[in-house]
Simulated assay, not measured.
Amino acid sequence: MKTNLLFFIIFCLLSSCDSLKHTTQVKKTLPELGTIGVYETYLLGTNYQPKTILSISEPVKVHLEKIKIEQRQVFIKKDSIQQPKQDSTHVTLEILDKLRVINEINTNPTLLSYLMETNQNRLVSQVRITFPESILSQLLAAEEIYLIQNRQKTLSLELRSGNRKTGQVEFSEGTIVSFQTSEFCWGQNERRKIVVFDVVPKGSQCSETSYKSVKIVKKKNKFKF
């Protein structure tokens, strides 16, 4: 009887470990450039909740930076060396034209109203991504790169050289390995309407005339008048 009970306990433990192993191997898809949502990182995990994307009527300029990842040689034992892994190239893509982004948000009543409901939403303003060599070469050859909206709820990268379009790249063609977000700074314009004044990196301060909370802007407005 005791032997059967022992086997049962061991079986349960092994099953639990296998289940845990399977769970930890599940990879989360990271958000694309221009996505808006809740992105929080905690000690024991993350809370990523993409809500919507920027709705843009005009192309938004993007800055590209190439990052070379050199694989170190690993020494196994004396006078022996493991075959080094092949170097890889990552690129960071960052929204450069913040003024265009602010204008697009402020002229979109639906999006503006949604963002005013909570100060938890962030804009994915930079991504680090890997692409196949053929696509990477197109990106590096382009003189300018723009974020465009080619279909509803879909943002793409438009490549330009010599003032003409030379190609288009989808984020789904690469693998996003990390991202950074920006926060919205709110203020009141000359018409006493609450709008986005600025977009700043997460953790940065807003200017003296703007705040990260719409509630504070409303309180300041009541105090003034």
Rank of each mutant, 00 (worst) to 15 (best):
T52F: 00
K66C: 04
Q126D: 10
Q49K: 13
V169T: 03
G162C: 01
R151P: 03
L155F: 07
F8N: 10
Y146N: 01
Q83L: 12
L54G: 03
T154E: 11
Q126G: 04
Q180V: 10
L64Y: 07
N47R: 14
I194W: 03
T118K: 10
N106L: 06
V199E: 06
T166A: 00
K98D: 15
E94A: 14
Y146P: 03
E144I: 00
S80L: 13
D97G: 08
V169H: 00
N189H: 08
I129L: 04
S80F: 15
Q149I: 00
Q152E: 10
V214N: 05
I105M: 02
N106G: 05
E170K: 10
P109Y: 05
S161C: 00
L99S: 15
S137H: 07
I129C: 01
R164S: 06
Q149F: 02
A142E: 02
S57R: 07
F8Y: 08
I148S: 04
L140F: 03
V38A: 10
K28L: 13
T118V: 06
E117K: 14
G162D: 01
K28G: 14
V60Y: 09
R191V: 12
L155T: 05
N121Q: 15
I194F: 08
I81K: 11
V101K: 02
L96S: 15
I9L: 14
E190I: 11
E117R: 12
L43N: 08
K165S: 04
V217G: 00
R100V: 10
I36G: 00
I95K: 07
R192T: 12
I194V: 13
S137E: 11
L54K: 00
L14F: 15
G162Y: 04
L157M: 04
V127R: 05
V38Y: 08
S80E: 15
F225C: 04
D87C: 01
E190A: 14
K153D: 12
N47Y: 10
E208N: 11
R122K: 15
V169C: 01
K28E: 14
N4C: 04
L33M: 06
S210F: 03
K77R: 12
I105F: 03
V91H: 03
V101M: 05
K212T: 12
S125F: 07
A142N: 01
Q73S: 14
L147P: 03
P132W: 01
